[in-house]
Amino acid sequence: MTDKQRNLFTAALLFVVASVWTVITVQTIPGGFSPGDIGARGFPLILGIALGILSLGLAIKTWMACPLPLGVEDETEDFGAGRSTLSVLIVLGHLVAYGFLMDKIGFALSTFVITLSMMVIGLRERNPLKILAFSVGTAFGAWLVFSRLLGVYMPLGTMITFG
């Protein structure tokens, strides 16, 4: 994708977000109650409209082919769309699973499971010793530091209680 295409795609996507946001705002959030009060609706509404205008502005500016650099942090940092998508999905999946598991099986165990899975799926590590050592070490270390030494109250698990 060229910079121009990417900018247009972004603008289009943001415009859709802005429209949906604005419609939901108008339909679900009541306006103000007292005099001079823009109410709970005012800000979300203004922001939704502002985003819509800005995304249109971005589209127009890109369309008119102004020299608009994309502004990605590092141009060399292109790893291909496939890999990028995969890594995003892996991280998203692990964090969501971490939240879910922490609630169900507690902090210590879920940390073990997630670090193990990150090593295997995320880092593609194949050395069983390394995997086990790192995930057990991280889980134990996290439990020791956070739950024991610092006294942060982490979930103990609702399905099975451990830690």
């Binding site: 964090l95 902090f107 940390t111 997630i114 670090t115 995320g122 880092l123």
Partner: peptide
């Protein structure tokens, strides 16, 4: 990065 996943959760 793996440690940071844990830190994010905590």
């Amino acid at each position: 990065a793996v440690v940071i996943v844990v830190l994010c959760g905590v």
